[in-house]
């Protein structure tokens, strides 16, 4: 499904070009008010617009994550509603320093999440260890235990930076569905 900028020729309405259809067929489908897409694309549309993150706040990044959820930045606008249980979540925002003691628990919570699931590494600590990169007790990035989809650098990243990262994740969910390489 592809949108073209609207032109005066089609009455100011944006013209939709569906995949696998010619231009005339697409115009006819649009006339009839029919939308055509793969099931994967439809699922991706739904998933990308209702990401329910598991709050994995471990350090100061969690404060920024809470700030992003509060009224000034309001993650609810994007359909992102924090859940306190891994069973209800499909996204894990790892916000903060993951110690080697916490690593196995992080993995267990990830395993408890139902598929499809995504992980966002928020901040320098979750990405690569950050200021504790030479520490004996801190994991050098959460990608050592769980597969990470989006890395957000910053120490801590500001709420807009987090929102930008989540927008990138939504983009990724949509593109993966198009490429048909999405997970499950």
């Amino acid at each position: 499904m592809e949108l073209t900028p609207h032109t005066p020729s089609n009455g100011g309405r944006p013209r939709v070009l569906f995949e696998g259809f010619t231009e005339e067929e697409s115009a006819e489908l649009q006339q009839a008010g029919v939308l055509v897409g793969t099931i994967e694309q439809m699922k991706a549309w739904a998933r990308a617009n209702s990401l329910w993150p598991l709050t994995f706040g471990l350090a100061c990044c969690a404060i920024e994550m809470m700030g992003a959820g509060a009224s000034h930045y309001d993650l609810d606008r994007f359909g992102i509603i924090f859940r306190a249980s891994p069973r209800q979540a499909d996204l894990m925002i790892v916000a903060g320093t993951v110690t080697k003691k916490m690593g196995p628990l992080l993995r267990r919570l990830y395993d408890q999440m139902p598929d499809p699931k995504w992980v966002v590494a928020m901040g320098s600590c979750a990405t690569a260890g950050g200021p504790y990169v030479r520490s004996y007790s801190v994991m050098k990035g959460v990608d050592q235990t769980v597969p990470v989809d989006v890395y957000i650098p910053g120490c801590p990243p500001s709420p807009p930076a987090l929102i930008y990262g989540l927008t990138k994740l939504q983009e990724k969910i949509r593109t993966d569905a198009k490429r048909k390489v999405g997970r499950l």
């Binding site: 990405t127 990608d143 890395y151 910053g154 930008y164 990724k172």
Partner: peptide, 12 residues
């Protein structure tokens, strides 16, 4: 500039 989120660590 703060819009720096990336899909891989190499991009950072």
């Amino acid at each position: 500039e703060f819009e720096l989120a990336a899909y891989s660590r190499d991009q950072l």
